[in-house]
Simulated assay, not measured.
Amino acid sequence: MAAAGPRRRPAALHPAAKPLLFVLALLPFAWLFYAAATDQLGANPQEHLIRSLGDWTLRFLCLTLAVTPLRIVAGQPALARFRRMLGLFTYFYAGLHLVSYAWFDMGLDVPEIAADIAKRPFILVGFAAFVLLTPLAATSFNRAIRWLGAARWQALHRAVYAVAGLAILHFFWMRAGKNDFAEVFVYAAILAALLGWRLWRRLRAPRLQPG
């Protein structure tokens, strides 16, 4: 019998996998920057830029939350190495979304921004999502895990579930003015499936333990 060949290394462990993901994750930013510089953002470029950055924030949030289900269901533990980068890109696009709103809509007028956040619920929940996301980004490194301890770090990072809920509520209220909910329902369904999978595993976990 011929000897078995060496096991093929998963693509996720290839040395080029992380750099490739980094480049791909930057492409939306690069395109928006180029489109803004060449006046290709339509009749209302500021609004297009703000909304596009918000859309990419939601997409990266969905991708980040999809890593664990894909890792477990597909039996690909190596996928976990991409979760941190995807989470940081979620924060990157959320920060750009907030800065674009503060700059283009409010002219970086801090008192006006604070008043606008307080009086408009959809901006308030969006800002709350960004605030909750900030400590998650700040503690996404190995040193923070060692400093906090694994249990406290995991408890802190469960705040991403609240971030997902606030992000969808922000998107829903933003689209309510135009009665346009098609995309909202798509993102809501994706996030509900990703969070529902986690809840299902948590509820059935005791039954899987022996004894």
Rank of each mutant, 00 (worst) to 15 (best):
R84C: 12
T90Y: 07
A36S: 12
D55R: 15
L70G: 11
L27S: 05
L32A: 06
E47M: 11
F33H: 06
I50A: 06
F89S: 04
I123W: 06
I113R: 00
T134N: 03
F60C: 07
L41G: 03
L58H: 06
V73H: 05
A66E: 06
F60N: 02
L136Y: 08
S52C: 03
A114W: 14
M85K: 09
T57I: 02
F60S: 07
F141T: 01
V67Y: 05
L133G: 12
L53V: 02
W103N: 08
A17Q: 00
T134G: 11
L32F: 05
A129C: 05
P45Q: 12
L132W: 11
E112D: 14
L61P: 03
L133T: 11
L98T: 08
P135R: 03
H48M: 08
A129Y: 13
G107E: 06
T64R: 07
L13V: 00
I117W: 13
R7H: 08
D55A: 13
L24C: 15
R120W: 11
D116N: 13
F22S: 03
G5F: 07
P28D: 01
A3E: 14
R84H: 10
P45L: 07
F89T: 02
P19I: 01
R81K: 12
T134I: 03
L96D: 02
T68W: 01
F92L: 13
I117H: 03
A102K: 03
R7Y: 02
G75P: 08
T64K: 07
W56M: 09
I72F: 08
F104Y: 15
L21D: 02
L63D: 04
A118Y: 05
P69A: 03
A36N: 13
T68I: 07
P135I: 08
R59F: 09
Y101I: 01
C62W: 05
Y93F: 15
T139R: 12
A66K: 09
A128Y: 09
F29R: 00
M85Y: 12
V67T: 10
L124P: 00
L61F: 07
M106P: 00
A118Q: 11
A137M: 14
A12V: 06
A3V: 13
R51H: 14
A80N: 15
L96V: 08
V131C: 15
G42V: 15
T64Q: 14
Y101L: 11
A137Y: 10
L108K: 04
Y93H: 11
A30C: 01
L133C: 09
H48A: 15
L13Q: 14
P28N: 05
F141L: 11
L32Y: 12
